[in-house]
Design a protein around this nucleic acid. Structure first.
Lengths: 141, 141
DNA sequence: AACACATGTAACAATAAAAGTTTCATGATA
DNA sequence: TATCATGAAACTTTTATTGTTACATGTGTT
Protein backbone atom coordinates (compact mmCIF):
# COMPACT_ATOMS: atom_id res chain seq x y z
CA UNK A 1 0.00 0.00 0.00
CA UNK A 2 1.32 3.36 -0.95
CA UNK A 3 2.13 5.62 1.95
CA UNK A 4 1.21 9.27 2.18
CA UNK A 5 4.48 11.06 2.79
CA UNK A 6 3.09 14.58 2.61
CA UNK A 7 3.21 15.06 6.37
CA UNK A 8 6.85 14.13 6.63
CA UNK A 9 7.71 16.30 3.66
CA UNK A 10 5.78 19.34 4.73
CA UNK A 11 7.19 19.31 8.24
CA UNK A 12 10.62 19.14 6.70
CA UNK A 13 9.82 22.17 4.58
CA UNK A 14 8.33 24.23 7.39
CA UNK A 15 11.38 23.86 9.58
CA UNK A 16 13.67 24.77 6.72
CA UNK A 17 11.51 27.79 5.95
CA UNK A 18 12.12 29.07 9.44
CA UNK A 19 15.82 29.39 8.64
CA UNK A 20 15.28 31.67 5.66
CA UNK A 21 14.96 35.42 5.90
CA UNK A 22 13.09 35.79 2.64
CA UNK A 23 10.29 33.85 0.95
CA UNK A 24 11.37 30.60 -0.71
CA UNK A 25 10.02 29.64 -4.12
CA UNK A 26 8.18 26.42 -4.89
CA UNK A 27 11.04 25.54 -7.21
CA UNK A 28 13.60 25.74 -4.46
CA UNK A 29 11.44 23.75 -2.08
CA UNK A 30 10.80 21.16 -4.77
CA UNK A 31 14.51 20.63 -5.23
CA UNK A 32 14.97 20.26 -1.50
CA UNK A 33 12.34 17.53 -1.50
CA UNK A 34 13.32 15.88 -4.78
CA UNK A 35 9.89 16.59 -6.10
CA UNK A 36 7.94 18.91 -8.34
CA UNK A 37 7.08 22.57 -7.77
CA UNK A 38 3.43 21.91 -8.57
CA UNK A 39 3.29 19.23 -5.89
CA UNK A 40 4.77 21.75 -3.47
CA UNK A 41 2.18 24.38 -4.33
CA UNK A 42 -0.62 21.86 -4.07
CA UNK A 43 0.38 20.81 -0.59
CA UNK A 44 1.42 24.22 0.69
CA UNK A 45 -1.88 25.67 -0.45
CA UNK A 46 -3.62 23.55 2.18
CA UNK A 47 -1.36 24.99 4.87
CA UNK A 48 -1.91 28.51 3.62
CA UNK A 49 -5.68 28.05 3.84
CA UNK A 50 -5.22 27.23 7.52
CA UNK A 51 -2.94 30.19 8.14
CA UNK A 52 0.31 28.34 8.76
CA UNK A 53 2.18 29.78 5.77
CA UNK A 54 1.68 32.58 3.30
CA UNK A 55 2.51 32.87 -0.37
CA UNK A 56 3.68 35.90 -2.29
CA UNK A 57 3.55 36.18 -6.06
CA UNK A 58 5.98 37.83 -8.38
CA UNK A 59 9.54 39.01 -7.91
CA UNK A 60 11.20 37.83 -4.71
CA UNK A 61 8.01 36.01 -3.92
CA UNK A 62 7.52 32.50 -2.59
CA UNK A 63 6.53 30.79 0.66
CA UNK A 64 7.15 31.90 4.22
CA UNK A 65 5.89 31.02 7.67
CA UNK A 66 2.79 32.82 8.91
CA UNK A 67 3.15 31.48 12.44
CA UNK A 68 6.01 30.71 14.76
CA UNK A 69 7.21 27.12 14.77
CA UNK A 70 6.44 27.06 18.47
CA UNK A 71 2.78 27.68 17.65
CA UNK A 72 2.53 24.73 15.25
CA UNK A 73 2.22 21.12 16.37
CA UNK A 74 2.53 17.92 14.39
CA UNK A 75 -1.20 17.52 14.94
CA UNK A 76 -1.99 20.87 13.33
CA UNK A 77 -0.24 19.91 10.13
CA UNK A 78 -1.50 16.36 10.13
CA UNK A 79 -5.09 17.50 10.40
CA UNK A 80 -4.58 20.10 7.71
CA UNK A 81 -3.34 17.49 5.26
CA UNK A 82 -5.71 14.62 5.84
CA UNK A 83 -9.12 14.25 7.28
CA UNK A 84 -9.23 10.50 6.88
CA UNK A 85 -8.25 7.67 9.13
CA UNK A 86 -4.54 7.14 9.60
CA UNK A 87 -4.85 3.38 9.18
CA UNK A 88 -4.38 1.18 6.17
CA UNK A 89 -6.94 -1.18 7.70
CA UNK A 90 -10.33 -0.76 6.13
CA UNK A 91 -13.71 -1.97 7.33
CA UNK A 92 -16.18 -3.59 5.00
CA UNK A 93 -19.63 -2.14 5.07
CA UNK A 94 -21.33 -4.12 2.38
CA UNK A 95 -23.51 -6.43 4.43
CA UNK A 96 -24.81 -4.13 7.08
CA UNK A 97 -27.47 -6.66 7.95
CA UNK A 98 -24.94 -9.28 9.05
CA UNK A 99 -24.44 -9.23 12.83
CA UNK A 100 -21.07 -10.91 12.46
CA UNK A 101 -19.81 -8.14 10.25
CA UNK A 102 -21.11 -5.62 12.74
CA UNK A 103 -19.34 -7.29 15.63
CA UNK A 104 -16.08 -7.60 13.67
CA UNK A 105 -16.12 -4.01 12.52
CA UNK A 106 -17.01 -2.68 15.93
CA UNK A 107 -14.13 -4.58 17.53
CA UNK A 108 -11.68 -3.36 14.90
CA UNK A 109 -12.98 0.18 15.05
CA UNK A 110 -12.78 0.34 18.84
CA UNK A 111 -9.12 -0.63 18.81
CA UNK A 112 -8.31 1.65 15.90
CA UNK A 113 -10.09 4.61 17.45
CA UNK A 114 -8.17 4.14 20.66
CA UNK A 115 -4.85 3.89 18.86
CA UNK A 116 -5.62 6.88 16.67
CA UNK A 117 -6.51 8.95 19.71
CA UNK A 118 -3.16 8.15 21.23
CA UNK A 119 -1.38 9.02 17.99
CA UNK A 120 -3.11 12.37 17.69
CA UNK A 121 -2.46 13.08 21.35
CA UNK A 122 1.26 12.50 20.83
CA UNK A 123 1.22 14.59 17.65
CA UNK A 124 -0.40 17.40 19.60
CA UNK A 125 2.36 17.33 22.19
CA UNK A 126 5.16 18.07 19.73
CA UNK A 127 5.77 21.55 18.34
CA UNK A 128 7.87 22.17 15.29
CA UNK A 129 10.20 24.39 17.28
CA UNK A 130 11.19 21.34 19.31
CA UNK A 131 12.12 19.55 16.13
CA UNK A 132 14.22 22.45 14.91
CA UNK A 133 16.40 22.52 17.97
CA UNK A 134 18.85 20.00 16.64
CA UNK A 135 19.12 21.89 13.39
CA UNK A 136 19.70 25.22 15.04
CA UNK A 137 22.30 23.70 17.32
CA UNK A 138 24.23 22.62 14.24
CA UNK A 139 24.06 26.05 12.69
CA UNK A 140 25.49 27.56 15.86
CA UNK A 141 28.64 25.48 15.73
CA UNK B 1 -5.74 6.08 0.02
CA UNK B 2 -6.97 2.61 -0.59
CA UNK B 3 -7.70 0.58 2.49
CA UNK B 4 -6.78 -3.04 3.05
CA UNK B 5 -10.05 -4.72 3.97
CA UNK B 6 -8.71 -8.26 4.12
CA UNK B 7 -8.67 -8.36 7.90
CA UNK B 8 -12.30 -7.35 8.24
CA UNK B 9 -13.31 -9.79 5.55
CA UNK B 10 -11.34 -12.74 6.84
CA UNK B 11 -12.59 -12.32 10.38
CA UNK B 12 -16.09 -12.27 9.00
CA UNK B 13 -15.42 -15.52 7.17
CA UNK B 14 -13.82 -17.29 10.11
CA UNK B 15 -16.75 -16.66 12.40
CA UNK B 16 -19.19 -17.82 9.77
CA UNK B 17 -17.10 -20.93 9.20
CA UNK B 18 -17.54 -21.85 12.84
CA UNK B 19 -21.29 -22.16 12.26
CA UNK B 20 -20.92 -24.76 9.50
CA UNK B 21 -20.66 -28.49 10.10
CA UNK B 22 -18.94 -29.21 6.81
CA UNK B 23 -16.21 -27.49 4.80
CA UNK B 24 -17.32 -24.41 2.86
CA UNK B 25 -16.13 -23.84 -0.69
CA UNK B 26 -14.29 -20.76 -1.89
CA UNK B 27 -17.23 -20.07 -4.16
CA UNK B 28 -19.65 -19.93 -1.28
CA UNK B 29 -17.36 -17.73 0.77
CA UNK B 30 -16.80 -15.46 -2.21
CA UNK B 31 -20.53 -14.91 -2.55
CA UNK B 32 -20.80 -14.15 1.14
CA UNK B 33 -18.12 -11.48 0.74
CA UNK B 34 -19.24 -10.17 -2.66
CA UNK B 35 -15.88 -11.04 -4.07
CA UNK B 36 -14.06 -13.64 -6.15
CA UNK B 37 -13.24 -17.26 -5.22
CA UNK B 38 -9.62 -16.74 -6.23
CA UNK B 39 -9.33 -13.82 -3.85
CA UNK B 40 -10.73 -16.03 -1.12
CA UNK B 41 -8.21 -18.78 -1.80
CA UNK B 42 -5.37 -16.30 -1.92
CA UNK B 43 -6.21 -14.87 1.46
CA UNK B 44 -7.24 -18.10 3.13
CA UNK B 45 -3.99 -19.73 2.01
CA UNK B 46 -2.12 -17.37 4.32
CA UNK B 47 -4.27 -18.47 7.24
CA UNK B 48 -3.82 -22.11 6.35
CA UNK B 49 -0.04 -21.70 6.36
CA UNK B 50 -0.31 -20.47 9.93
CA UNK B 51 -2.60 -23.31 10.97
CA UNK B 52 -5.79 -21.36 11.54
CA UNK B 53 -7.81 -23.07 8.81
CA UNK B 54 -7.49 -26.15 6.61
CA UNK B 55 -8.49 -26.80 3.04
CA UNK B 56 -9.78 -30.00 1.48
CA UNK B 57 -9.85 -30.64 -2.24
CA UNK B 58 -12.42 -32.48 -4.27
CA UNK B 59 -15.96 -33.56 -3.49
CA UNK B 60 -17.43 -32.05 -0.35
CA UNK B 61 -14.19 -30.17 0.09
CA UNK B 62 -13.61 -26.55 1.04
CA UNK B 63 -12.42 -24.56 4.03
CA UNK B 64 -12.88 -25.25 7.71
CA UNK B 65 -11.43 -24.03 10.99
CA UNK B 66 -8.31 -25.77 12.26
CA UNK B 67 -8.47 -24.05 15.64
CA UNK B 68 -11.18 -23.00 18.01
CA UNK B 69 -12.36 -19.41 17.71
CA UNK B 70 -11.39 -18.98 21.32
CA UNK B 71 -7.79 -19.73 20.40
CA UNK B 72 -7.61 -17.04 17.71
CA UNK B 73 -7.22 -13.33 18.41
CA UNK B 74 -7.61 -10.36 16.13
CA UNK B 75 -3.85 -9.95 16.46
CA UNK B 76 -3.17 -13.46 15.17
CA UNK B 77 -5.07 -12.83 11.98
CA UNK B 78 -3.78 -9.31 11.55
CA UNK B 79 -0.19 -10.46 11.75
CA UNK B 80 -0.85 -13.32 9.38
CA UNK B 81 -2.20 -10.97 6.74
CA UNK B 82 0.22 -8.09 6.88
CA UNK B 83 3.68 -7.55 8.11
CA UNK B 84 3.78 -3.87 7.25
CA UNK B 85 2.94 -0.79 9.22
CA UNK B 86 -0.74 -0.18 9.85
CA UNK B 87 -0.44 3.51 9.03
CA UNK B 88 -1.10 5.41 5.87
CA UNK B 89 1.52 7.89 6.99
CA UNK B 90 4.87 7.33 5.33
CA UNK B 91 8.29 8.67 6.23
CA UNK B 92 10.62 10.07 3.62
CA UNK B 93 14.09 8.63 3.67
CA UNK B 94 15.65 10.37 0.73
CA UNK B 95 17.88 12.89 2.44
CA UNK B 96 19.34 10.90 5.23
CA UNK B 97 22.01 13.53 5.71
CA UNK B 98 19.51 16.22 6.65
CA UNK B 99 19.18 16.57 10.42
CA UNK B 100 15.77 18.16 10.04
CA UNK B 101 14.45 15.19 8.20
CA UNK B 102 15.90 12.95 10.88
CA UNK B 103 14.23 14.90 13.65
CA UNK B 104 10.89 14.96 11.83
CA UNK B 105 10.93 11.27 11.06
CA UNK B 106 11.96 10.31 14.55
CA UNK B 107 9.14 12.34 16.07
CA UNK B 108 6.60 10.85 13.71
CA UNK B 109 7.93 7.35 14.16
CA UNK B 110 7.91 7.56 17.94
CA UNK B 111 4.26 8.53 18.01
CA UNK B 112 3.32 5.96 15.39
CA UNK B 113 5.18 3.17 17.15
CA UNK B 114 3.44 3.96 20.36
CA UNK B 115 0.02 4.03 18.72
CA UNK B 116 0.70 0.82 16.82
CA UNK B 117 1.73 -0.92 20.02
CA UNK B 118 -1.54 0.03 21.60
CA UNK B 119 -3.48 -1.14 18.57
CA UNK B 120 -1.78 -4.53 18.54
CA UNK B 121 -2.25 -4.86 22.28
CA UNK B 122 -5.97 -4.31 21.88
CA UNK B 123 -6.12 -6.71 18.94
CA UNK B 124 -4.42 -9.32 21.10
CA UNK B 125 -7.03 -8.96 23.79
CA UNK B 126 -9.97 -9.92 21.58
CA UNK B 127 -10.67 -13.51 20.58
CA UNK B 128 -12.94 -14.44 17.72
CA UNK B 129 -15.18 -16.39 20.05
CA UNK B 130 -16.03 -13.15 21.78
CA UNK B 131 -17.12 -11.68 18.48
CA UNK B 132 -19.31 -14.66 17.66
CA UNK B 133 -21.33 -14.38 20.83
CA UNK B 134 -23.83 -11.98 19.35
CA UNK B 135 -24.29 -14.18 16.33
CA UNK B 136 -24.81 -17.33 18.35
CA UNK B 137 -27.27 -15.55 20.58
CA UNK B 138 -29.34 -14.74 17.52
CA UNK B 139 -29.30 -18.33 16.30
CA UNK B 140 -30.57 -19.52 19.66
CA UNK B 141 -33.70 -17.40 19.49
C1' DA C 1 -11.13 -45.69 -15.32
C1' DA C 2 -13.78 -41.73 -16.16
C1' DC C 3 -15.89 -37.88 -14.36
C1' DA C 4 -17.05 -34.09 -11.46
C1' DC C 5 -15.63 -31.11 -7.92
C1' DA C 6 -12.61 -28.14 -5.41
C1' DT C 7 -8.28 -26.17 -4.38
C1' DG C 8 -3.55 -24.31 -6.23
C1' DT C 9 -1.38 -21.16 -9.00
C1' DA C 10 0.15 -18.20 -12.61
C1' DA C 11 -0.70 -14.31 -15.42
C1' DC C 12 -3.16 -10.45 -16.37
C1' DA C 13 -6.77 -6.53 -15.99
C1' DA C 14 -9.28 -3.16 -13.20
C1' DT C 15 -9.27 0.19 -9.64
C1' DA C 16 -7.80 3.83 -6.63
C1' DA C 17 -4.90 7.27 -4.57
C1' DA C 18 -0.58 9.77 -4.29
C1' DA C 19 2.74 11.80 -6.88
C1' DG C 20 4.62 13.73 -11.04
C1' DT C 21 4.08 16.55 -15.27
C1' DT C 22 2.57 19.85 -18.71
C1' DT C 23 0.39 23.96 -19.76
C1' DC C 24 -1.41 28.29 -19.32
C1' DA C 25 -3.69 32.00 -16.61
C1' DT C 26 -3.10 35.50 -12.99
C1' DG C 27 -0.91 38.71 -10.21
C1' DA C 28 3.24 41.41 -8.48
C1' DT C 29 7.54 43.70 -8.96
C1' DA C 30 11.45 45.83 -11.03
C1' DT D 1 6.23 46.01 -20.10
C1' DA D 2 9.01 42.15 -19.28
C1' DT D 3 9.98 38.90 -15.78
C1' DC D 4 9.09 36.18 -11.95
C1' DA D 5 6.24 33.57 -9.10
C1' DT D 6 1.93 31.43 -7.62
C1' DG D 7 -2.84 29.38 -9.09
C1' DA D 8 -5.06 25.91 -11.20
C1' DA D 9 -6.70 22.57 -14.60
C1' DA D 10 -5.84 18.40 -17.06
C1' DC D 11 -3.27 14.57 -17.74
C1' DT D 12 0.26 10.77 -16.91
C1' DT D 13 2.87 7.77 -13.91
C1' DT D 14 3.38 4.87 -10.11
C1' DT D 15 2.16 1.34 -6.83
C1' DA D 16 -0.70 -1.28 -4.20
C1' DT D 17 -5.06 -3.97 -3.56
C1' DT D 18 -8.58 -6.28 -5.73
C1' DG D 19 -10.79 -8.71 -9.48
C1' DT D 20 -10.58 -12.03 -13.38
C1' DT D 21 -9.34 -15.72 -16.56
C1' DA D 22 -7.39 -20.01 -17.45
C1' DC D 23 -5.52 -24.18 -16.41
C1' DA D 24 -3.10 -27.64 -13.51
C1' DT D 25 -3.50 -30.69 -9.52
C1' DG D 26 -5.58 -33.49 -6.33
C1' DT D 27 -9.78 -36.03 -4.40
C1' DG D 28 -13.92 -38.47 -4.04
C1' DT D 29 -17.95 -40.72 -6.65
C1' DT D 30 -19.96 -43.65 -9.92
Amino acid sequence: MRKDSRLSRVLHVLIHLDAFEHPVTSDTLAKMLNTNPVVVRRTMALLRDQGYVKSIKGHSGGWSLAKSLSDITLLDIHQTLSENSVFTIGLTDEHTACPIEHAVNRALKDAMDEAESLLLKRFGEVTLSELSIEFKAQLAT
